[in-house]
């Protein structure tokens, strides 16, 4: 397996990342085609055998079931500290709660704790905003993410699926805060 730095960070990741949206209880969430836990585990095990150290999931994949499956498999098959776990926040898990979902300070601080519980770990390596939240000031979102890192609950930050001009606003923040910059972008938008 080849390993490269994730952007300009010091973090080394395998050049193949295993996307774990495919793993989750098919009765939970929007994807009926996902593999249940028993069917999923051999794939995670095989990925580890092939040298993959980079696993990507999200809080909303199968309404948290993906994180649970990935967390248990990593605990059972390998050493958590040797693995790079990426997860995401934005989409609501409880449609009846107006504060579920989005990128408010309240939502981010609640969702990181919920993800850590489901994953069975003290920290995630890469915490990504799954989409941009047009209804929350970007400064509020970025400060909350910064606090997640400072609290030791995430090592690096990332962003998924937005316009380049929106993404550059985060770069400005990186310069101004001299803190943890965004280290990954997981969608080509050209």
């Amino acid at each position: 397996m080849d390993f490269v730095n994730l952007g300009r960070t010091g973090l080394k990741v395998s050049r193949i990342c295993l996307g774990c949206m495919s793993y989750g209880d098919p009765n939970r969430g929007m994807h009926s085609w996902t593999l249940d836990e028993a069917a999923s585990r051999p794939f995670i095990q095989r990925a580890l055998e092939l040298g993959i150290n980079f696993f990507d999931t999200a809080n909303m994949y199968s309404l948290g079931s993906s994180e649970e499956i990935v967390g248990r498999a990593i605990r059972d098959f390998t050493k958590r500290d040797e693995i790079v776990i990426a997860t995401k926040v934005f989409f609501p898990l409880n449609p009846n709660d107006p504060n579920s979902g989005g990128l408010s300070r309240k939502a981010i601080l609640r969702e990181i704790d919920a993800s850590l519980k489901r994953l069975g770990t003290d920290y995630v390596d890469l915490y990504q905003i799954h989409r941009l939240d047009p209804n929350t000031p970007i400064e509020e979102t970025l400060e909350a993410l910064h606090d997640v890192v400072k609290a030791g609950k995430a090592r690096y930050l990332g962003a998924s699926s937005m316009h380049a001009w929106q993404f550059t606003r985060r770069s400005i923040w990186r310069t101004c805060m001299a803190g943890r910059g965004l280290s990954a972008c997981s969608r080509i938008t050209t």
Partner: peptide, 26 residues
């Protein structure tokens, strides 16, 4: 994988050959 600045594609694997194909692509 040949394109800068791609770090790592996020591949899905639901059949046995999916993982091996991804790694062999390197």
């Amino acid at each position: 994988l040949s394109k800068r600045p791609i770090t790592a594609p996020i591949i899905g694997a639901t059949k046995p050959q999916h993982l091996d194909d991804a790694v062999k692509a390197l």
